[in-house]
Nucleic acid binder design. Structure first.
Length: 449
RNA sequence: GCGGGUGUAGCCAAGUGGUUAAGGCUCCGGAUUGUGGUUCCGGUAUUCGUGGGUUCAAUUCCCAUCACUCGCCCCA
């Protein structure tokens, strides 16, 4: 077992021995730890991971997902966080960076396992394994959960991050593409994100794609040596990604190259499918923009691909990405089935939303008799109200001060109230206070939200 | 994997080669032993991420290291 010393606070003892080499301090520390076991050293969070401290906002994001997806007939699926490595190398594609250098892979009992870097592969595996192809199509599934990629963290990019995604199986018609995009747009709208623009493209079928790749490679052949290092490797690995380059803009701007880029290599059938998708979106007034440069990084996409971007996200500007992947189910060993889907980054989604106001309780019970406050609070909690009390014997004014910060109403049970069998109900916004008979008080109405 | 920036309290931060390291917010306590969110007073850094070097003297200058952060790449 190895111990990673990534935070100097781990060894507070070092401070007691200034000027001594770190090694000595560490040794003394460890001895101390072994013999006394009382050193409380600080262990920091793992790089690229985050504690979620605004869980209420996340709950809202998840609740809206459930609400909207249900309307469209999507059912939630929960698949394991790790799978056999091969699922991803075959599914996501072994030319991708995700598979090549970003996976958390480990070996257990001679099996190579990997923490999922994305959600689709696992869902497809489950679709196949559980015989969902036997269900009457479409089969509509959604998921949410943590994903893992070993990348350099930066704004909008973590090593453990969360995605919410939707997948639709069994329909090859353009209506499915349109529904899935509409679902994403409406989900974002339900969270108050109304004017994000959809970027749309079609990669065509595998045949179109091959032709397109060839054409791009041909026209760029004599420019190859002038391209940046990244593009040189993309030229071989994944020529479509060349179109994404931000460095070699000047080269790509050349007329004969633009001609190839702008030309439609997609076949008649693919073109028809694409224009049908677009007319559906027009019909639902979904704002979109054709982006011929849009190429999804995962290998499994064909025909429709799309992204939803925001300027306020920094350089990691896509909040949602997806498309059609008709070959994946067959590729992973199932009977061929068409499919479309997308995923959203929940951290990115969260960063687009305005922070939530702090939540106040309905009431705060103030009393010098803790037991009595406790009793009333429990009574109201059973009635469905949120109620707090002082647990540490604070004085009356301190209790009231606390109440004014944490709750909408103060319920005061002092000696006078005790004698009279009443509770003073104070509206902490208006300052208005009234006494009510404790026995027949209708709390739900008195503390009406 | 490559390049830039930053590290002073729970948070935001000023600061200087030299006796006790500003200030603000939060928190805790008091003024106020039954009436708050306003105000006033008090309290919280044996030390400036860590280690080393230069110096009579380092939070300040230098080196290393670690962490964070932004960008490339890639992607949600």
């Amino acid at each position: 077992m190895s111990i990673y010393l990534n935070n100097s606070k781990i060894f507070p003892m070092q401070r007691l021995f200034p000027g001594k080499p770190a090694g000595l301090a560490i040794t003394i520390n460890l001895l101390f730890y072994v013999f006394h076991g009382i050193i409380n050293f600080m262990i920091s969070i793992v790089k690229g991971t985050k504690d979620i401290l605004d869980a209420e906002q996340w709950q809202r994001i998840e609740q809206k997902a459930l609400e909207i997806f249900s309307k469209y007939g999507y059912r939630e699926i929960r698949t394991p966080v790790f799978e056999y490595t091969e699922l991803f190398s075959r599914g996501v594609g072994d030319t991708t960076d995700i598979v090549n250098k970003e996976m958390y892979t480990f070996e257990i009992n001679k099996h190579s396992l990997t923490l999922r870097p994305e959600g689709t592969a696992g869902v497809v595996r489950s679709y196949i394994e559980n015989g969902m192809s036997r269900l009457s199509p479409p089969v509509k599934l959604w998921y949410k959960g943590p994903m893992f990629r070993y990348e350099r963290p930066q704004a909008g990019r973590q090593r453990q991050f969360h995605q919410v995604g939707a997948e639709l199986f069994g329909v090859k018609e353009a209506a499915a593409d349109a529904e899935v995009i509409l679902l994403a747009v409406n989900y974002l709208k339900s969270l108050g994100l109304n004017d994000l623009e959809v970027e749309l493209n079609s990669l065509g079928c595998p045949d179109c794609r091959e032709n397109y790749k060839k054409a791009i490679k041909t026209v760029l052949k004599q420019e190859l040596k002038n391209l940046c290092a990244d593009c040189q490797s993309r030229y071989e690995k994944n020529p479509l990604r060349l179109l994404d380059c931000k460095v070699d803009g000047a080269i790509f701007a050349k007329a004969e190259i633009q001609k190839v880029i702008q030309s439609d290599f997609i076949c008649g059938e693919c073109a028809a499918h694409f224009s049908e998708v677009k007319s559906y979106l027009d019909g639902f007034a979904v704002k979109y923009r054709r982006n011929k440069q849009l190429v999804r990084g995962l290998d499994y996409y064909n025909r429709t691909v799309f992204e939803i971007k925001s300027d306020s996200l920094g350089s990691q500007n896509a909040v949602c990405g997806g498309g059609r992947y008709d070959g994946l189910v067959g590729n992973l060993g199932g009977a061929d089935a068409p499919a479309v889907g997308w995923a959203m980054g929940m951290e990115r989604l969260n960063s687009l939303l305005a922070p939530l106001e702090p939540i106040k309780s309905d009431a705060y019970v103030i009393s010098n008799s803790a037991a009595d406050a406790f009793r009333l609070a429990e009574e109201l909690r059973i009635q469905g109200l949120s109620v707090e009390i002082d647990l540490s014997g604070k004085k009356f004014t301190k209790q009231l001060e606390k109440a004014s910060k944490a709750a909408n109403f103060a319920l005061i049970i002092g000696e006078d109230e005790m004698k009279a069998g009443t509770v003073s109900v104070k509206n902490l916004c208006t300052g208005v206070q009234t006494a009510v008979k404790r026995k027949d008080a209708r709390w739900q109405i008195l503390l009406k939200k």
